[in-house]
Amino acid sequence: MITVNGEPLDWKPGMTVQDVLDAKRYTFRMIGIWINDRPVPKNEFSTTEVPDGAVVQAIHMVSGG
């Protein structure tokens, strides 16, 4: 189990940042990811694995209109 923006999400072995985004249907282009407070560069989303128990922040950047 991991948490994403404070909400629980089932964890699977080998789960990447991109898998988390897909599971949450986060399709926005300007998302910043922090795993346990450490930032993940955008070009590493599909290669970075999320460890079990991780606290993931998926921060949508735009402050809008």
């Binding site: 923006n5 926005f28 921060i59 949508h60 809008g64 209109g65």
Partner: peptide
């Protein structure tokens, strides 16, 4: 209007 504050993502999605 939307020119003062647009906080939807920050509040509703990011839970910040």
């Amino acid at each position: 209007q939307h020119d003062e504050a647009w906080l939807i993502f920050m509040d509703m999605v990011n839970k910040q």
